[in-house]
Design a binder for these strands. Structure first.
Lengths: 363, 363
DNA sequence: CTGAAAGCGCTTACAG
DNA sequence: CTGAAAGCGCTTACAG
């Protein structure tokens, strides 16, 4: 590959040693059908010549591109880059390249993005679906990273458990009236987090309420205030957002209103986004183990690729090896829930009853 | 490609119509050497059969993979995803796939990342270098996105001009003592922004000072306070960070100290990161035209790929067409500076002399 | 306007 | 242990 090949190919190496390409190929791929000394000489020559194997040749012959696709609903959203990074790393370790396909926030474009990947011949793909995506027609092994409540097998953080962790944390700090802040009531991730949160609390002793930002913004426009000062007046002492993004919004709105965090009220987030440790006060949040998630997704994908009738064979009469693969396969073996981890920082603190009014002490 | 090919190939289409593969190929690639009616029938058959061309076959024959590489120092840093998204989009429009290579913040890994891309046979690559990266050895066309002060031709936002815009904005609001906040004094992007900022101001009437977070953190640990309340006491009325990330850190630290923004002091950032419009007060910032930057990079890359001895030819005796390409080429024709745009929001406001002391009014 | 043939670089099953 | 040969799917230059 590479526009007009520069380096040598197997034939050149073979010629320069006066041997056959088959032997060179065998030596370089370490199949062990070559004497140790010759293999050594071959490797040395290849290195000296700066040999880089042609992926195109290999792909055409083996029917495998060595490339995985990563389908993301919107890379520019703060959580996805971390996923992309972890996937790229796991894939590289497993010897795969990663082709990205971003649907830029547009749900309809996800199918197109998947199609582009298929046309590029990916061996499999990791999909982070947006609600409403049909993943039916990929025609290759697919690993889905989503929430456990998505139908079918997925790997994901255990958002429900994460919600429980935060809820317990706030309960143990003494909070009894907690506002949950979500962006979109159609998001299953957010609903899982909220569901877990509520499930950890005894509704008779602790009151919770959910504020959906989308509804507010429909009325008041994007970037509008969330009316948290009013909520403080109503006695809410903790604000648990389903994302650090919204936690940050809550934090600054409260601060701007002169309400001290965590002295008067507590704020918590989700995801441990990049700025969360450095804002003041630093955000208490829940971190997902993205490395583990990526590992599970890639491992499942790779083993599906390898099991699905491996390399083509090319002898007449052994067509059995070329049976068509089952088109689309969700390859995560079981619904995998990777635990989330509570990260306690300064934005959450013990309830102080005397201070639930507007106040503006300096720390 | 795709582990074990499922769909039909040109041969199958040709057979089903009783014609030759050459004709099918010509019809499908629209080279126009086929009668209109036959071409139509061929396209219909291809569609009916669900034909997807094999990238591997095409790549092997043409010497072109149709894939570009994107080398990023750290995808999980908030600005890079936007770049990745824009590059992916421009590349897709131009008919290219994008393989990502992330060096996860480790400068040394960048060369490895580039090497991985070369091994995958990319036709060219876009590199966003980290200071200290040598881009010498890619062996294929390379477009560099960086700052104009980088040696060699690059495409980038005009960080210097962006700095000037912010400086003028603050000057026009009446600020006369401004603290610039940077992370790393080795970053040429940050230095360009700061240089531009200072260049727009008359140093005799407006005092500026640069605070480098890295130095503070060396002493006080990561996430430490920036001591901005002290700076306010010293008479600084505006805090201009070289990134929204640091602006956010400044904003929350000031708010936490009971200093109202923008009533008492102004805060500005850079980059218009995703949360900047929704914090309270929303951040005044500078936005780069990432779409334009990506467009320039991809256009340059694609034309370099096409000019660098296009498709291989295969007749004996015309070896001239296979002249090796000049190994590594920086393909941006001239140092391109894409203007940045000021986005005025609520975090900056007119200087109010009476209020530069600690205060905590509610809005 | 259409077709036959070559060959990109590789890997594999088989023969020696 | 080593080699000769086939063939993955495509595109191109040439012949008809």
């Amino acid at each position: 590959m590479g526009s007009a090949r520069l380096g040598p190919n197997l034939t050149r190496i073979a010629a320069s040693l006066g041997i056959s390409v088959a032997t060179v190929s065998n030596a370089l791929s370490g199949k062990g059908r070559v004497s140790v000394e010759l293999a050594e000489r071959i490797r040395a020559t290849a290195a000296a010549l700066g040999y880089v194997p042609s992926q195109a040749g290999r792909a055409l012959r083996t029917g495998r591109s060595g490339v995985l696709g990563l389908v993301l609903p919107d890379i520019s959203n703060p959580l996805f880059p971390q996923i992309a990074q972890a996937i790229e790393h796991s894939a590289a370790v497993a010897g795969y390249g990663v082709l990205i396909a971003d649907s830029r926030g547009d749900i309809g474009m996800q199918s197109e993005a998947i199609q582009r990947l298929v046309e590029r011949g990916v061996d499999g793909m990791v999909i982070v679906p947006r609600r409403g995506t049909r993943i039916a027609d990929a025609g290759c092994p697919v690993a889905v990273i989503d929430t456990p409540s998505t139908p079918g097998n997925t790997v994901s953080a255990d958002h429900w458990q994460g919600g429980r962790e935060i809820a317990r944390h706030l309960r143990n700090l003494g909070h009894r009236k907690i506002l949950l802040i979500g962006a979109s009531s159609a998001s299953s991730v957010q609903n899982d987090r909220i569901g877990g949160f509520k499930s950890a609390l005894d509704a008779t002793t602790i009151k919770t309420e959910v504020l959906w930002i989308e509804k507010l913004e429909e009325r008041d426009g994007p970037g509008c205030l969330l009316g948290l000062a009013d909520k403080v007046q109503q006695g809410f002492t903790a604000f648990a957002a389903v994302s650090d993004l919204h936690a940050l919004r809550a934090l600054t709105e409260l601060q701007r209103a002169g309400i001290a965090v965590p002295d008067s009220v507590s704020v918590t987030g989700f995801d441990d986004l990049i700025w969360s440790p450095v804002v003041t006060p630093a955000l208490t949040t829940i971190r997902m183990d993205i490395t583990a998630i990526a590992e599970i997704a890639i491992t499942a994908l790779v083993s599906a690729i390898n099991n699905g009738k491996p390399i083509k064979t090319m002898r007449p009469g052994d067509a059995s090896a070329d049976e068509p693969l089952p088109g689309n396969r969700l390859v995560i073996a079981e619904k995998s829930r990777v635990p989330m981890q509570l990260v306690v920082r300064q934005s959450s603190g013990p309830l102080r009853l005397a201070k639930t009014k507007l106040s503006a002490e300096n720390s």
